[in-house]
């Protein structure tokens, strides 16, 4: 499709871009928790995707193909920056906020909590919650079994809740 005339190629790419743009950005943004890095990954993902299309790469699963590119770029970034310094949750000292939380603030807290998770758990959470994937799809994307995918998603959520609990007790009246 993208190998037709330039105009056709552009139109085809635009269509695919529009379909996946938000999802890829959300994936990179929440996996990396770094706006600048996420934008780099986001752009590079689509450039590589375009190149693959142009080169005639066979794609059985377009979504999987795109997320695999994005995931590899995210991993490369994390390795090169050596950003993964996992801190035990219990040792992590949060700033205490005294004002009312709103949805955006809650999201910021979730993002902070996500940043504390190992890549596998974070990825499972993002694929499940942000991309709306089924456990089977998460398993396929992460190259694990269905049971492992379920466990990762649940553990990720539990860890995030554990981290958030002291800070959202007021707004949730719990």
């Amino acid at each position: 499709m993208v190998r037709g005339s330039r105009r056709e190629a552009e139109a085809a790419f635009s269509e695919l871009f529009n379909r996946y743009s938000s999802r890829i950005h959300a994936y990179a943004y929440r996996i990396l928790n770094d706006q600048e890095a996420a934008e780099d990954v986001y752009q590079e993902t689509f450039v590589r995707f375009h190149k693959a299309l142009r080169d005639g790469a066979e794609m059985q699963n377009l979504t999987g193909f795109l997320f695999t590119i994005s995931k590899n770029l995210c991993l490369n970034y994390l390795k090169s920056k050596k950003r993964r310094n996992t801190v035990p949750i219990e040792d992590y000292d949060f700033e205490v906020f005294n004002h009312t939380y709103e949805s955006e603030e809650l999201m910021n807290l979730i993002a902070m909590a996500l940043d504390l998770l190992d890549f596998e758990f974070r990825e499972a959470f993002v694929l499940r919650e942000y991309q709306g994937m089924s456990y089977a799809e998460v398993a396929e994307m992460t190259g694990t079994t269905l049971a492992t995918a379920k466990i990762r998603v649940h553990r990720a959520k539990q860890k995030i809740k554990t981290i958030l609990k002291p800070y959202v007790r007021d707004i949730l009246a719990i």
Partner: peptide, 20 residues
């Protein structure tokens, strides 16, 4: 309640879902 709040927050995460 926490699960509901988390889901709502994720669903409305404009910063993630709207590329600049």
């Amino acid at each position: 309640k926490m699960s509901l709040a988390m889901r709502s927050a994720v669903r409305n995460d404009r910063a993630a879902f709207v590329p600049p």
